[in-house]
Design a protein around this nucleic acid. Structure first.
Lengths: 151, 151
DNA sequence: GTTAGTGCAAACCTTTTGCAGCTCT
DNA sequence: AGAGCTGCAAAAGGTTTGCACTAAC
């Protein structure tokens, strides 16, 4: 795994706990929060402590191996994490059903380039989060409105 | 004030405390967090409670009158707030000095339009936060690197 | 007068820290 | 062997809640 290699190169110890966590982060294509990651990790290693999850996530974030997201705090104030392998993308979050889609269009690259040029800024990370209603929930909301009217 | 009018129309009571808070939010062109707002509000109204600040911010956010930002958690996990009057913009945050610049370019509109078209998504809010080093801090970091080497 | 809003205290959730003991290299 | 890492308990930081009292309309 890419993360494993990168950590090994830098002399970071690959403890049993870290291997469990890295596997989960790498496999899950989803955006995990610390608590979910903790619960899943305990299925493999019931002794693993929540604190270790936080420490590992912090280390991976500072190493640039994972990105931290807020996803507009769709379910509270926790953070979400994803591996950094992928191309730059925006997260499109449905505020009704919570589904998260990823958008990889060229406006993102243009935005980045323009900000660098406009401010002479050295960009290290870009976080774009778009909230609203997905097409499915738009229809459901229309129904809900109808029902509210007749009630 | 625009916010005042909007609240009055909807029958929200304009208490003394809310007037103090609305004034501060409206005047400050900056991005305030709850604690800063609380401290400033107490200069005018020393009895005003921190909880009232949180409740007011929540109400304004849910009314769509202010936007909640994270600013990449540059100083911790608190939220920042700004009035929604302005055009859509991205926040460009220096991770060294904490300065926040605002970018209003057309790639933002293109991004919005493309996401709407691609996913049939109804966008309610867009949050773009860009982190890195401002031109000033790039130079300072270069110096720091030099010093680290010779030390 | 009624109902929404406030203050206070206490709880809550997420994350961090101090420290003693364990384990990877 | 020894620095780096873990677990536990406890604290921290930011925010929310329950309830009795107050004030806006």
């Amino acid at each position: 795994m890419e993360m494993t290699r990168s950590l090994k190169e830098r002399g970071v110890r690959l403890t049993r706990q870290r291997q469990v966590l890295l596997n989960l982060i790498d496999q899950s294509g989803q955006h995990l929060d610390a608590e979910t990651l903790y619960l899943r990790a305990r299925e493999t290693d019931p002794k693993l402590n929540r604190v270790t999850v936080y420490r590992t996530l912090k280390m991976l974030k500072e190493s640039g191996l994972v990105d931290e997201l807020d996803l507009l705090h769709k379910d509270g104030d926790q953070h979400y994490y994803e591996t950094r392998m992928k191309r730059e993308h925006a997260h499109v979050i449905c505020l009704r059903c919570g589904k998260v889609e990823e958008y990889f269009g060229e406006p993102l690259a243009r935005l980045r380039k323009e900000v660098e040029e406009t401010f002479g800024f050295e960009i290290l990370l870009v976080r774009t989060e778009i909230g609203g209603y997905c097409s499915h929930c738009q229809a459901l909301r229309a129904e809900e409105m109808e029902q509210a009217k007749s009630a």
